[in-house]
């Protein structure tokens, strides 16, 4: 038993190495002072990070991505909260099928979502811009928000709400003073995860963005230029650190939500 345990552990560690290897290349080569991404390493340098400061297209792309990520995340969290509240609190006609329908983007390949939305926008003769991407991302993130908010509302004790109503608070007051604070870890989780998904999403943005690139669309365009490679690695390193911070926050609030449960 002991021996097989050790073999098992080494398999797991080997696998973890495989999982980590590509991501580790980002920091390694973004601090390497060579224009080519190859071994042996030639020396330490921060020029690739400095280069990012002078890339105006990058700054525009980043700004576009932030606008899209913030808008679509807030919209999706509002929609997801409404769905989750309806799902956990009321029994009504057509509940199962309509909620399943709202969750469908979870199981559609993203390219299909992109093609569908593009078709409809072209048919309507609408212009492609940042707002078309916001709509696409809202559609994509709403199911994730819904699932997170369903678990947040499930942790909510209904009797607290009833007590507040019995003691004469209006339903709006009850929502603000009782419900909102208790589901806030869920809300924050949903905002964080939605933000990360939107910031990272490429294919829908690629189809719907028109002339304004988002960050992933910008990165995609940089892949064609070998000279831009090291600074793209530097950008990747920054993105990795940012998403690590966001995900750690997500994990923190998720645990907090679980604490409410117990």
């Amino acid at each position: 038993m002991k021996k097989s345990n050790k073999i098992f552990k080494s398999i797991v560690i080997l696998f973890l190495t495989f999982l980590y290897a590509p991501a580790l290349l980002l920091p390694i080569f973004s601090f390497n002072n060579s224009k080519v991404i190859a071994f042996p390493l030639t020396g330490f340098s921060t020029i690739w990070f400095e280069e990012l400061f002078y890339e105006n297209t990058l700054h525009n792309a980043l700004l576009n991505s932030l606008v899209i990520a913030i808008s679509s995340t807030i919209l999706a969290t509002i929609l997801g909260t409404l769905v989750a509240r309806a799902s956990t609190r009321y029994i009504f006609y057509g509940k199962k099928i309509s909620i399943t329908f709202i969750l469908v983007p979870l199981i559609l390949p993203e390219i299909i979502l992109g093609v569908c939305l593009l078709t409809v926008l072209i048919q309507l003769g609408l212009e492609l811009n940042l707002w078309s991407v916001v709509l696409g991302h809202t559609l994509l993130i709403t199911p994730f928000s819904t699932l997170i908010m369903v678990s947040a509302f499930n942790n909510l004790d209904i009797s607290l709400e009833e007590a507040s109503l019995d003691l004469g608070m209006s339903s709006l007051q009850t929502f603000r003073i009782i419900i909102l604070p208790m589901v806030s870890p869920g809300l924050i989780s949903s905002l964080l995860i939605g933000f990360v998904i939107s910031l990272d999403e490429f294919i829908i943005a690629f189809f719907l963005t028109g002339v304004e690139p988002t960050l992933p669309v910008y990165i995609w365009s940089q892949f064609r230029f070998p000279a831009k490679l090291p600074s793209t690695m530097a950008l990747g390193t920054i993105l990795l650190i940012v998403s690590l911070i966001l995900v750690s926050l997500f994990e923190y609030f998720r645990r907090k939500m679980e604490l409410y449960n117990n």
């Binding site: 929609l79 997801g80 409404l82 769905v83 509240r85 309806a86 609190r89 009321y90 029994i91 009504f92 006609y93 509940k95 309509s98 909620i99 329908f101 709202i102 469908v104 983007p105 569908c116 939305l117 709509l135 696409g136 809202t138 559609l139 709403t142």
Partner: peptide, 20 residues
């Protein structure tokens, strides 16, 4: 229950109809 449920679900459902 029907009324309150659909009042909440209405907007997201219409959103999904138009975008999906």
């Amino acid at each position: 229950q029907n009324k309150r449920g659909w009042r909440l679900l209405g907007v997201p459902f219409i959103f999904a109809i138009f975008l999906l």
